[in-house]
Amino acid sequence: METTFLAIAVLFGLGLYIILTHQNLIKIAMGIGVMESAIILLFIIFSYRPGGTAPILDADAQAYDLIVDPIPQALSLTAIVIGAATTALMLALIIKIYNRYNTLYIDEIKKLKG
Protein backbone atom coordinates (compact mmCIF):
# COMPACT_ATOMS: atom_id res chain seq x y z
CA MET A 1 0.00 0.00 0.00
CA GLU A 2 2.67 2.50 1.04
CA THR A 3 4.56 2.11 -2.21
CA THR A 4 1.44 2.77 -4.22
CA PHE A 5 0.65 5.82 -2.15
CA LEU A 6 4.18 7.06 -2.75
CA ALA A 7 3.76 6.46 -6.46
CA ILE A 8 0.49 8.41 -6.46
CA ALA A 9 2.01 11.35 -4.56
CA VAL A 10 5.01 11.43 -6.89
CA LEU A 11 2.86 11.16 -10.04
CA PHE A 12 0.56 13.93 -8.85
CA GLY A 13 3.51 16.18 -8.03
CA LEU A 14 5.20 15.37 -11.32
CA GLY A 15 2.09 16.31 -13.30
CA LEU A 16 1.76 19.58 -11.43
CA TYR A 17 5.46 20.33 -11.93
CA ILE A 18 5.13 19.80 -15.68
CA ILE A 19 2.17 22.16 -15.85
CA LEU A 20 3.92 24.83 -13.82
CA THR A 21 7.27 24.81 -15.58
CA HIS A 22 6.82 23.72 -19.18
CA GLN A 23 6.29 26.10 -22.06
CA ASN A 24 4.99 23.66 -24.62
CA LEU A 25 1.22 23.43 -24.77
CA ILE A 26 1.22 19.72 -25.60
CA LYS A 27 3.41 19.05 -22.58
CA ILE A 28 0.98 20.92 -20.38
CA ALA A 29 -1.77 18.67 -21.68
CA MET A 30 0.42 15.67 -20.87
CA GLY A 31 1.03 16.98 -17.36
CA ILE A 32 -2.68 17.19 -16.75
CA GLY A 33 -3.02 13.65 -18.03
CA VAL A 34 -0.40 12.46 -15.56
CA MET A 35 -2.20 14.18 -12.69
CA GLU A 36 -5.48 12.58 -13.64
CA SER A 37 -3.94 9.13 -13.86
CA ALA A 38 -2.61 9.60 -10.34
CA ILE A 39 -6.12 10.30 -9.13
CA ILE A 40 -7.56 7.28 -10.96
CA LEU A 41 -4.86 5.16 -9.33
CA LEU A 42 -6.04 6.47 -5.99
CA PHE A 43 -9.59 5.38 -6.81
CA ILE A 44 -8.32 1.88 -7.56
CA ILE A 45 -6.30 1.68 -4.35
CA PHE A 46 -9.27 2.77 -2.29
CA SER A 47 -11.53 0.15 -3.81
CA TYR A 48 -8.96 -2.63 -3.39
CA ARG A 49 -9.48 -5.23 -0.69
CA PRO A 50 -6.72 -7.87 -0.40
CA GLY A 51 -8.07 -11.11 -1.80
CA GLY A 52 -11.30 -9.57 -3.05
CA THR A 53 -13.14 -10.55 -6.24
CA ALA A 54 -14.31 -8.21 -8.95
CA PRO A 55 -17.80 -6.85 -8.21
CA ILE A 56 -19.52 -8.99 -10.82
CA LEU A 57 -21.56 -11.69 -9.18
CA ASP A 58 -22.99 -14.98 -10.38
CA ALA A 59 -26.66 -15.66 -10.85
CA ASP A 60 -26.74 -18.85 -8.82
CA ALA A 61 -23.79 -18.76 -6.44
CA GLN A 62 -23.73 -15.44 -4.64
CA ALA A 63 -21.35 -16.64 -1.99
CA TYR A 64 -18.10 -14.81 -2.47
CA ASP A 65 -16.02 -14.24 0.61
CA LEU A 66 -14.82 -10.80 -0.20
CA ILE A 67 -15.72 -8.41 -2.97
CA VAL A 68 -13.84 -5.21 -3.70
CA ASP A 69 -15.63 -1.92 -3.15
CA PRO A 70 -17.71 -1.22 -6.29
CA ILE A 71 -18.35 2.47 -5.60
CA PRO A 72 -14.87 3.88 -6.39
CA GLN A 73 -14.86 1.76 -9.53
CA ALA A 74 -18.10 3.32 -10.72
CA LEU A 75 -16.85 6.79 -9.77
CA SER A 76 -13.53 6.30 -11.50
CA LEU A 77 -15.35 5.37 -14.70
CA THR A 78 -17.14 8.71 -14.55
CA ALA A 79 -13.90 10.52 -13.76
CA ILE A 80 -12.09 8.85 -16.66
CA VAL A 81 -14.79 9.80 -19.15
CA ILE A 82 -14.83 13.40 -17.95
CA GLY A 83 -11.03 13.57 -18.04
CA ALA A 84 -10.84 12.12 -21.53
CA ALA A 85 -13.51 14.50 -22.81
CA THR A 86 -11.74 17.52 -21.37
CA THR A 87 -8.41 16.40 -22.80
CA ALA A 88 -10.01 16.14 -26.24
CA LEU A 89 -11.33 19.68 -25.89
CA MET A 90 -7.90 20.86 -24.83
CA LEU A 91 -6.25 19.24 -27.86
CA ALA A 92 -8.78 20.89 -30.15
CA LEU A 93 -7.94 24.27 -28.64
CA ILE A 94 -4.22 23.57 -29.03
CA ILE A 95 -4.79 22.83 -32.72
CA LYS A 96 -6.63 26.14 -33.09
CA ILE A 97 -3.88 28.06 -31.30
CA TYR A 98 -1.23 26.37 -33.43
CA ASN A 99 -3.10 27.32 -36.59
CA ARG A 100 -3.11 30.95 -35.55
CA TYR A 101 0.45 31.35 -34.30
CA ASN A 102 2.40 28.47 -35.87
CA THR A 103 4.02 27.71 -32.56
CA LEU A 104 3.25 25.73 -29.45
CA TYR A 105 5.45 27.64 -27.03
CA ILE A 106 3.79 29.97 -24.57
CA ASP A 107 6.52 32.62 -24.56
CA GLU A 108 6.58 32.82 -28.35
CA ILE A 109 2.80 33.19 -28.40
CA LYS A 110 3.13 36.02 -25.91
CA LYS A 111 5.77 37.67 -28.11
CA LEU A 112 3.55 37.39 -31.17
CA LYS A 113 0.69 38.88 -29.25
CA GLY A 114 2.92 41.84 -28.41
Partner: peptide, 18 residues
Amino acid sequence: ASLVVVVILSSLLMMTFL
Protein backbone atom coordinates in the same frame (compact mmCIF):
# COMPACT_ATOMS: atom_id res chain seq x y z
CA ALA B 1 9.54 27.99 -6.91
CA SER B 2 7.44 25.39 -8.70
CA LEU B 3 9.61 22.66 -7.25
CA VAL B 4 9.02 23.96 -3.74
CA VAL B 5 5.25 24.11 -4.29
CA VAL B 6 5.18 20.63 -5.78
CA VAL B 7 7.31 19.09 -3.02
CA ILE B 8 5.14 20.66 -0.33
CA LEU B 9 1.95 19.44 -2.00
CA SER B 10 3.25 15.95 -2.60
CA SER B 11 4.49 15.51 0.94
CA LEU B 12 1.19 16.82 2.26
CA LEU B 13 -0.53 14.25 0.09
CA MET B 14 1.78 11.48 1.29
CA MET B 15 1.32 12.38 4.93
CA THR B 16 -2.44 12.40 4.43
CA PHE B 17 -2.34 8.98 2.83
CA LEU B 18 -0.34 7.59 5.71
